[in-house]
Design a binder for these strands. Sequence first.
DNA 1: GTCTATATATCGATAGAC
DNA 2: GTCTATCGATATATAGAC
Lengths: 194, 194
Amino acid sequence: MPDTARRERYHHGALRAALIDTSIDLLAERGLEAFSMAEVSRRLGVAQAAPYRHFADRDELLAAVAVHAGDVLHERLVRVTGDGSPAQRLAAASAEYVRFAAEQRPLFQALYGAGLDKRRPDLQRMGERIGALFLAPARQICGTDEHAQRLTSAVIATAHGHATLLVDHGVDENAPEDAAAAVRALIAGRRWLT
Amino acid sequence: MPDTARRERYHHGALRAALIDTSIDLLAERGLEAFSMAEVSRRLGVAQAAPYRHFADRDELLAAVAVHAGDVLHERLVRVTGDGSPAQRLAAASAEYVRFAAEQRPLFQALYGAGLDKRRPDLQRMGERIGALFLAPARQICGTDEHAQRLTSAVIATAHGHATLLVDHGVDENAPEDAAAAVRALIAGRRWLT
DNA sequence: GTCTATATATCGATAGAC
DNA sequence: GTCTATCGATATATAGAC
């Protein structure tokens, strides 16, 4: 990259992806409150008007980041649910869910804390894809579909609770393993899930 | 209240409490993103400078709302943990925690989603008071303090997970009872909490 | 597809009068 | 303890040139 200034790199074509990347960086450094189209543009060295060619408004950009975050989370969950007993896979998925929140905090926040409309089709679909990764092992554990559904909801709530407490209340080294343990306890006591 | 306009009511004395009340209303109607000192002042019919006599800045006012929210939650939890077996009290506390989030959504958000510094002494103390209500029954259930601590963390994470999913993902009628059931399962399977 | 320039709006916070 | 007035910063979004 000889003389071409930073502001030349993204012209004509690659801006959309660069906007998402820079948004993630910005969310990571300054949080959701400080996120703005203006600041993203500034960081990329493009005009404030440029992003509006790719995203209709601020929420559209945030939603694109959320979808990206969902893809990352989904991939991580797939990786850890490849083998083992159904119970092990549920526990591993929960631990990984919490690990994702800890290691990719801004992505996790974009996914859940960005105040986006959850009825958006893209976000809806993403939630279902991720939920399916929990439901599959639960089906193998439970006798009926209804029971599997209950167990899945309880497991996701437990993982999500550990993740949000971790993100909101500071770092806890053992949160991922704690979440996995809680899920094992939940499975052991699942006859109480009404 | 004959001729005295609304803007007269809060002069000289009662503004502090009125600011907290109005902040809660504003958070309820428009969410945290739309919360501002300016809008709170506008709603009360006072000058934008007036709140700064009572709160140093925006965060101080939000923190006061959070402390109020903590008091309300604490009171609700005390009310439902008065009697019953330790397991029943833990389950009841969890259900009430979720019910609070559902019924007092803005207060719940002020408590956890306001991006406040958790090292604030007032908020720290509040978290401990609420945690103690979960720890007491857990102590009666568990043999050692360490086990009680683990069970408490798992129960709070479960309740918090159900609450945040409820608040973020729309209304679910049965979330409080689901949380209680999950806690019962957690207690039954507590030997897995490493 | 990006730029310059701008309209429009709102915010947090302060100074000084009363 | 509240008001008026205001500064300075920042935001979203659009219009029109290139």
